[in-house]
Amino acid sequence: MTRKRGELLRDDTNAKIAGVCAGIADYFGWEVWLVRIITVSGLFLGIGGFVFVLYIAAWLVLGKKSQVQAELKTTGSQAKTAVKDKHVEIKTRVWQRGEAPNQVLKHLSNEFNEIELRLRDMERHVTSTKFQLNKEFNNL
């Protein structure tokens, strides 16, 4: 599964300390727990000083994701981002971000049930006598 990468930002909404691991996981499309385990393992397996310095540098250098999204919404250039995105990612590997296939199936089933109910309401309205009467008045 190919995914278009955006900017590398700190994800302060899913942060435990500063959001660096959550931002890296979001950038690469991985699970956050995997990036955190790799970071903590690096701290304890001999390269701790290097990992600590990189983490602090990323904390200071990377921008916050929530601030960037707020700036985009205020400029109005990204009005479509305010609309709820109904895209669901399917997890094909353990380390990838997304939902398990059975959860995606349940999600899609619920979506199709909602669509079917809306379609039934529309059919009921179009086939009603009130709709026919309004249509005839509009044609006059």
Score class of each variant (00 low, 15 high):
Leu60Ile: 11
Trp95Ala: 05
Leu45Ser: 13
Glu116Pro: 03
Arg118Asp: 15
Leu8Val: 12
Arg5Met: 15
Gly19Arg: 00
Val104Leu: 03
Met122His: 07
Leu105Lys: 05
Val68Glu: 15
Gly42Ser: 06
Tyr55Ser: 02
Asn139Trp: 08
Gly48Asn: 06
Gly63Cys: 06
Leu9Trp: 09
Phe131Val: 00
Val126Thr: 00
Asn110Cys: 03
Ser128Lys: 09
Asn138Val: 06
Ser77Ile: 10
Asp12Ser: 03
Leu72Asn: 12
Ser66Phe: 05
Leu133Ala: 11
Leu54Ile: 04
Ala18Arg: 11
His87Lys: 06
Thr81Cys: 08
Glu136Tyr: 07
Ser128Ile: 11
Ile115Arg: 09
Ala57Ile: 07
Val35Ile: 14
Arg124His: 10
Ala18Leu: 10
Thr81Ala: 11
Asn110His: 08
Leu45Glu: 11
Gly63Phe: 12
Asp11Cys: 09
Thr2Asn: 05
Lys16Met: 08
Glu71Lys: 15
Val32Ser: 01
Val40Ile: 12
Thr129Met: 01
Arg3Phe: 12
Val94Gly: 01
Val94Trp: 12
Asp121Gly: 09
His87Ser: 15
Asn113Glu: 10
Thr75Pro: 01
Val32Ala: 02
Leu8Ser: 09
Leu9Val: 14
Gly48Pro: 07
Gly46Lys: 04
Asn138Thr: 06
Phe44Gly: 04
Phe137Gly: 02
Ile90Asn: 00
Leu9His: 07
Arg120Tyr: 04
Lys135Pro: 00
Phe131Gln: 00
Arg93Tyr: 02
Thr74Asn: 02
Asp26Ser: 03
Met1Gln: 02
Leu62Trp: 07
Leu8Tyr: 02
Thr129His: 09
Gln132Asp: 15
Ile56Asp: 02
Leu54Lys: 05
Arg124Asp: 09
Gln132Ile: 03
Asn138Arg: 14
Asn134Gly: 06
Trp59Pro: 00
Lys130Glu: 11
Asn102Arg: 10
Ala79Trp: 15
Leu108Glu: 13
Thr13Val: 07
Glu114Lys: 15
Asp26Arg: 11
Glu71Arg: 15
Ala100Asp: 08
Thr129Asp: 14
Lys135Asn: 13
Leu62Asp: 07
Glu71Gly: 10
Glu31Ser: 04
Val104Asn: 13
Ala82Trp: 06
Thr2Lys: 15
Asn139Ile: 12
Arg97Gly: 05
Asp26Lys: 01
Asn138Gly: 14
Ala79Ser: 14
Arg93Ile: 02
Val94Ser: 11
Glu111Tyr: 03
Glu114Cys: 13
Thr129Ala: 13
Pro101His: 05
Thr13Tyr: 11
Leu119Gln: 06
Gly23Leu: 11
Gln69Asp: 13
Lys84Phe: 08
Trp95Arg: 01
Thr81Leu: 15
Asp85Phe: 00
Gly6Phe: 10
Arg36Trp: 10
Val88Ser: 09
Val51Pro: 01
Ala15His: 01
Ser109Gly: 11
Lys80Ser: 14
